[in-house]
Simulated scan of single mutants.
Amino acid sequence: MPLTTEQLAERVTAQGRPMRANTITKIEKMQRRVDVDDLVALAVALEARPDALLLPPTIAEDELQLTDGTVVTAYLAWRWMNGGGSPDRPPRGGRRHRVQPLPGTRTTVWPARLLRRVSGSDGSQVPAHRGEPVASIQKRPNGKWRARYRDEAGKEHARHFTKKVDAQRWLDEVSASVLTGQYGDPRAGRVTFRAYAEQWRQAKPHRPTTQVKAEQHLRVHAYPAFGDRPLARIRRSDVQSWVTGLEKGGMKPSTVRTTFNTVHTVRAVFRAAVSDRVIAASPCTDVDLPEVPRRKVVPLTVDQVRALAAAMPKRYRALITVGAGTVLRPGELFGLQVRHVDFFKRQRRVE
């Protein structure tokens, strides 16, 4: 039964995304942009796949104009929307087959070579392209609804729900994550922190000294707290408790920050896990670190510098004077040569 804009607005609002009827009218007239949350809420309200709302219903031979003005056939536009390549390049070979979509979705045409089918409870079939999960919902003998999908690697993922609408919402969220490039295998987060951190540490092109520091920081501080826990089970509160425990255990605030922040420690491991899509978000975000008290720097007086230089062996006296006047670090001072100094411009170059 067709819905009025008022009825659709009520359904969308019930999904936790408040939306008025005139807002939906503006969306239909392309006078308002739609973000991912709007797209998912509309898809759930219409019992449709999110990507089915992004292109109009049409047959393969019809032409569509994309946002940038490019005119392509509907078949190529749908194929591009589902990860099948550029819309201006047709696939190599392959026949076109019409398949039945889920209730509420719009019929389209797909190439046979990219098609896999999973039957739903009503006999419907969902087309899947590379990068798009195959999905279905089926009512179980116990009355619950089983939602499942296969990812691009062919692995099946399933969850059971009391209500069909909850199952559909979960599948729509998966579809939205695929469209936005945020999809990750839910099972990937089962790897333990120790296993992933060791794989990450050995793959990093660290210098030998950095490798030693990374192994030491992880082994001494991180593994006792997180080593045997799955990455997906580590929460921000766990990391916060760990940071607080380091300080209470007698570690200096500056050392706590180094253990947490540097490129070869805990924060870097979780950042890499997010980049690899092992976990959706890093638990290190917004973790409060101990304040490091700032010490006031009191420079030496001219008389103190002269006294210090006089107390040094003759060959090192110039080192003291130059260091006090240029604020170079010890290693830079020891590497300073005559060719690094321009006496006419009163400049020195650090290499």
Results as ranks from 00 to 15, higher is better:
Pro283Cys: 14
Ala268His: 03
Thr259Gln: 10
Leu39Asp: 02
Pro56Met: 11
Pro224Phe: 08
Ala280Asp: 08
Arg190Val: 12
Gly94Gln: 03
Asp38Phe: 06
Thr285Asn: 13
Met19Cys: 14
Asp238Tyr: 14
Trp145Ala: 00
Lys139Leu: 12
Lys164Glu: 09
Pro313Gln: 10
Arg229His: 11
Ala45Tyr: 01
Pro127Glu: 02
Pro205Tyr: 06
Arg130Thr: 12
Met1Ile: 10
Arg277Phe: 06
Val292Met: 12
Ala60Thr: 01
Arg17Val: 14
Val72Ser: 05
Pro224Leu: 07
Val118Trp: 00
Arg92Trp: 06
Leu114Asn: 11
Leu114Tyr: 12
Thr265Asp: 10
Glu215Asp: 15
Ala43Met: 06
Ser119Asp: 10
Ile59Gln: 14
Ser241Ala: 15
Met30Tyr: 15
Trp145Met: 00
Gly181Arg: 07
Pro111Asn: 05
Ile279Ala: 05
Phe344Cys: 13
Leu76Asp: 02
Leu179Asn: 01
Tyr183Ser: 04
Gly143Lys: 04
Ile24Ala: 02
Ala307Met: 07
Leu336Asn: 00
Ser86His: 14
Thr5Glu: 10
Lys29Tyr: 13
Asp166Val: 00
Asp38Pro: 05
Leu53Ile: 01
Gln125Met: 10
Asp151Lys: 00
Gly227Val: 04
Val126His: 00
Thr258Met: 13
Gly120Pro: 04
Pro330Asp: 09
Arg229Pro: 04
Thr105Met: 06
Arg339Gly: 15
Leu218Ile: 08
Lys296Tyr: 09
Arg271Cys: 06
Ala281Gln: 13
Arg140Val: 11
Trp170Arg: 00
Val269Gln: 02
Ser175Phe: 02
Glu47Gly: 03
Phe161Lys: 01
Leu319Thr: 11
Leu231Thr: 07
Leu3Tyr: 11
Phe260Asp: 05
Pro90Phe: 05
Pro103Asn: 14
Asp286Lys: 13
Ala60Val: 02
Arg113Pro: 08
Glu215Tyr: 11
Ile279Thr: 06
Val341Gly: 07
Ser282Asp: 09
Ile27Asp: 04
Val274His: 03
Arg159Ile: 00
Thr321Val: 15
Gly120Lys: 04
Arg294His: 13
Ala9Arg: 04
Ala9Val: 13
Val269Gly: 05
Leu55His: 02
Thr244Cys: 08
Leu55Phe: 04
Leu39Trp: 02
Thr209Gly: 11
Lys29Thr: 15
His97Thr: 12
Asp276Met: 10
Pro290Gly: 08
Gln347Ser: 15
Leu246Phe: 05
Gln199Pro: 02
Thr180Leu: 05
Val298Leu: 10
Arg98Asn: 08
Glu28Gly: 13
Arg130Ile: 11
Val174Ile: 14
Gly84Asn: 06
Gly16Gln: 11
Gly181Tyr: 09
Gly16Lys: 11
Ser175Asp: 04
Lys248Asp: 13
Gly94Asp: 04
Ser237Pro: 03
Thr23Tyr: 07
Pro141Arg: 13
Pro91Val: 10
Arg236Met: 13
Arg346Met: 10
Arg233His: 15
Ala14Trp: 12
Arg194Ile: 08
Thr4Arg: 09
Ala273Pro: 07
Val266Thr: 08
Thr108Leu: 01
Arg130His: 14
Val36Gln: 12
Arg294Val: 11
